[in-house]
Simulated assay, not measured.
Amino acid sequence: MTDPQPAIRLTGLTKEFGAVTAVDHVDLEIAAGEFFSMLGPSGSGKTTVLRLIAGFEQPTSGTIELFGDDVTKRAPFDRDVNTVFQDYALFPHMSVLENVAYGLRVRGIGRKERIERARRALASVRLEQMGDRKPSQLSGGQRQRVALARATVVQPKVLLLDEPLGALDLKLREQMQVELKEIQRELGITFIFVTHDQEEALTLSDRVAVFNDGRIEQLGTPAELYERPGSRFVADFVGTSNLFDDAVSRALLGRGGVHSVRPEKMAVGSGETAADVRNAPGTVVETIYLGSGIRLVVDLDAGVRVSVLEQNDRNRVHDDERGDRVVVSWHDDDVVALGGADASSAPAV
């Protein structure tokens, strides 16, 4: 059962570096046992928030609470959190088991108990047979799991992960995303994960905070952020979106404002005639083969370039080529309003 007390509560959290405001009055609650991601481009403030929670930086103003306890002014070693970094920071001269047990040794835990707990931690990441090896004898994914075991063996209330998969190749990173989520569920520890990779955040998280210019642009579940982005920034950063400005929205939708439609919500064909379907003629400018899908880039006659993602399945009977005239279709329900000029006064569709 989830603890009703938030694992982390940030109130008015601000961090300034001279004239630069890296974190701008952030208010946030993260539930106990939650896999929570902070997503955003470089310089958006997400990593600074993580460092403030860890105690590596002190806020200019605001408070940080850990399970209701104000830890704002406490040193990193006096907070019940632990951090996993991208480079893992394993000791090369120690065995895997010694690396995992190191934090317990620093805390004065007796040898017998720390070895037993370290072995249990290695078992939790499925590396119980690797204890005698040195880090150099492990793969990148195995070293990442050793770093997780070392961080969790001291049983922190919150685990902070600073882009821990960034150094892995694509296939291993995808594999580790699944394993990381499984490990988090088994341990029941609150994970706070920082990444600039939107697919990674959507794959792993219970909830995601999208950061922009030191503030949280939008907070929600992966499905909420993807299906109903609250701003142009989120629509453009989380996944791929076709964005219609005010003029294009009026021409294609019959209403003003800025709107978005995801590429997979669009289709290329002869044009449906249902009342809730919009059709727009255009010209194919590029066809991109993706294996599992086909991405078509189409210049609509209304003056906007859109991307259409089609599944590469047995129902696909025709390959559109550059220069082909096509009709792009989408349903009204798949259009997301992002605000903008005269959006509120425009006629309804």
Rank of each mutant, 00 (worst) to 15 (best):
D213M: 09
S292M: 14
L300D: 05
G254Q: 06
F211T: 05
V248R: 14
A247F: 01
K265W: 01
Y226I: 12
R228A: 12
K265H: 12
G254D: 00
A209Y: 09
T221V: 12
S292C: 08
R278K: 13
F211S: 03
E264V: 01
K265M: 00
E217W: 04
T273A: 12
Y289F: 15
G293S: 15
A274S: 14
G214C: 02
V304H: 07
I216V: 12
P222H: 11
S307K: 14
L290M: 13
R305V: 02
T273M: 09
A247K: 15
G282F: 04
V268D: 00
T273Q: 13
L252F: 01
D301P: 00
V208R: 12
R295M: 11
G257C: 12
E217M: 07
E264P: 03
T287P: 04
A274E: 13
V261I: 15
F211K: 03
G303D: 03
A267V: 14
I288R: 14
R295W: 09
V248T: 15
R295G: 03
D276A: 09
N279P: 09
V277G: 04
R232C: 02
V277R: 14
T283V: 15
P263K: 07
A223I: 13
I216Y: 03
L219S: 09
V304E: 06
N242R: 11
L219M: 04
L225W: 04
S270W: 00
A274N: 13
R255S: 03
A223L: 14
G220S: 10
Y289D: 01
R295H: 13
A247Y: 06
K265G: 00
A251E: 14
D299P: 00
L253F: 11
S292K: 13
N242Q: 11
E286R: 15
A274H: 10
F237W: 02
V261E: 05
A275S: 12
T283P: 08
G269P: 06
T221A: 10
G282H: 05
L225A: 08
V248Q: 05
N279M: 12
A235R: 06
G257Y: 05
D246Y: 08
S249W: 10
R305A: 00
G291I: 01
L252H: 02
N242H: 10
V304F: 10
V208A: 09
E224V: 05
R207V: 08
L252S: 01
V308Y: 08
